[in-house]
Write a protein that binds this DNA or RNA. Structure first.
Length: 271
DNA sequence: ACATGCGCCTGAGTGC
DNA sequence: TGCACTCAGGCGCATG
């Protein structure tokens, strides 16, 4: 669900409200949540009394850096981190998994499909975790990006979705980026020309930045740290629009499963 | 190296 | 209205 722009929006929202505050209380409202995350309650409770020193993001992962420890969130498909949501809407109560109270603010973790996960890591060992995630799509340098595409023989869509290779893009942004770059999602990454790589790189970055300015895409459940919807879905050109005319040439947009992921593209514009 | 299928969850939508 | 089925923003794992 939350891809790079959404996680970045949440990071900024939380930073403005709870940075440098002390975590006073944690309550786990759903035991399986910790079991799945492989964290014991005792371990989690060691965060109590610690100050939140910074909030960082790499790809779709959000890092809450406390004194000595880092709590990492991956929001899966439907995870939401919302501050001071009260009352909790009736239909969300059974998906409310965790609350963390930072002085006067309470952060709620709500996750309908429960694909989200948390990790608790000793700050000294954080680089091990970071190294398993590919370079962030907004940070990666052009030369690295080109090298990445050239050394793999993967469909470009598959490559962009692989978080170990490049992190932050999910199904929505991948389809939107490839459409704007006029590249067919099934093109093998090592067959792209220098021009195409350059255009893909530039479009990927500018699209992500634009989506952050619009506070992300709310297709179904996504809301930001204040519980509000994003606006970038209004600028989607292909995602969720199979069969509709291509905004460039009018050809019906085609739908196909690539890598088990629904993919929408224009068979005429995307070569 | 790369592709494919499954499982983890819940809710919304469709067709009968 | 009920039921069966498909689909959905992700990812890890097993198999070929």
């Amino acid at each position: 669900m939350p891809e790079l722009p959404e996680v970045e929006t949440i990071r900024r929202d939380l930073t403005s409200r709870i940075l440098n505050k002390t975590l006073n209380e944690i309550s786990v409202l759903h035991k399986n949540f910790l079991t799945k995350s492989k964290i014991s309650l005792t371990e989690l409770l060691t965060l109590k009394g610690k100050k939140l020193l910074s909030l960082e993001r790499k790809g779709k992962y959000l890092f809450l850096n406390f004194e000595e420890k880092t709590l990492i969130f991956h929001l899966g498909l439907t995870g939401a981190l919302i501050l001071d949501l009260h009352p909790i809407p009736e239909n969300l109560k059974k998906h409310h998994l965790l609350t963390m109270t930072f002085e006067q603010n309470t952060l709620h973790y709500i996750d309908i499909r429960k694909f989200g996960k948390i990790y608790l890591i000793d700050s000294l060992k954080i680089s091990f975790f970071l190294n398993r995630i590919g370079p962030d799509a907004l940070q990666i340098e052009f030369e690295k990006f080109r090298e990445l595409l050239q050394k793999h023989n993967l469909k470009i869509k598959t490559l962009l979705l692989n978080q170990r290779l490049i992190s932050g893009l999910g199904n929505i942004y991948t389809d939107e980026v490839l459409f704007r770059a006029k590249i067919n999602p099934e093109r093998l990454s090592n067959t792209l020309s220098e021009e195409e790589i350059k255009s893909l790189y530039e479009i990927m970055k500018s699209l992500l930045k634009e989506a952050i300015l619009l506070r992300g895409s709310s297709v179904k459940n996504y809301v930001d740290g204040e519980g509000k919807r994003g606006k970038f879905q209004e600028r989607h050109l292909v995602y969720g629009k199979k069969g509709r005319p291509c905004p460039e040439c009018g050809t019906p947009l085609q739908y196909k499963k690539i890598n088990q992921r629904g993919t929408v593209f224009c068979p005429n514009c995307q070569k």
